[in-house]
Simulated scan of single mutants.
Amino acid sequence: MTPRWQKSSYCSEGASCVHVTAAAETIHLTESSDPARVILTAAPAAFDAFIAVLKEESPRV
């Protein structure tokens, strides 16, 4: 099955964007401007922890 990638809601038009998809107990991330098309794979719990850290450390707008 071909993964269905979702673009980050923080991505502006034409910008380099993070894309995410989920499949069979894994989360996959990639970045649109990466010429090697590297895919980072994480377990859901690890991905949740990653997002929690980003939310804690991101500047408040």
Rank of each mutant, 00 (worst) to 15 (best):
C17G: 02
S32M: 03
E31H: 14
C17A: 10
A52C: 06
F50P: 00
H19R: 09
V18I: 13
S32E: 04
E56A: 11
F47P: 02
S33R: 10
F50D: 01
S12R: 15
I27V: 15
R37Y: 00
V53D: 05
T21Q: 04
E56N: 05
H19A: 03
E56F: 00
A24V: 05
T41D: 06
A43D: 13
D48C: 04
T21E: 01
E56V: 04
P35F: 00
H28R: 13
V18E: 08
I51N: 12
L29N: 05
A46Q: 14
A15H: 08
K55D: 10
A45M: 12
S12C: 12
I51A: 15
E25N: 15
L40D: 09
I27A: 06
A24N: 14
E56C: 02
V18Q: 04
S16K: 07
P35S: 13
H19L: 04
S32K: 00
P44Y: 00
E13S: 15
L29D: 00
T26P: 00
F47V: 08
C17Y: 03
E13V: 12
A15I: 00
E25W: 05
A52Q: 07
S33L: 07
G14L: 06
L29E: 03
E25I: 01
A43Y: 09
K55P: 04
L29W: 09
S16G: 13
L54I: 10
I27K: 01
D34K: 03
A49T: 11
H28G: 12
A42S: 12
I39E: 11
L54Y: 05
A23L: 12
A43V: 06
V53A: 08
A45I: 04
V20K: 15
E31W: 11
F50Y: 13
F50I: 00
F47H: 06
A49I: 05
P44C: 09
K55W: 03
F47W: 14
C17P: 01
L40K: 07
A23E: 08
P35L: 01
F47N: 05
S16D: 11
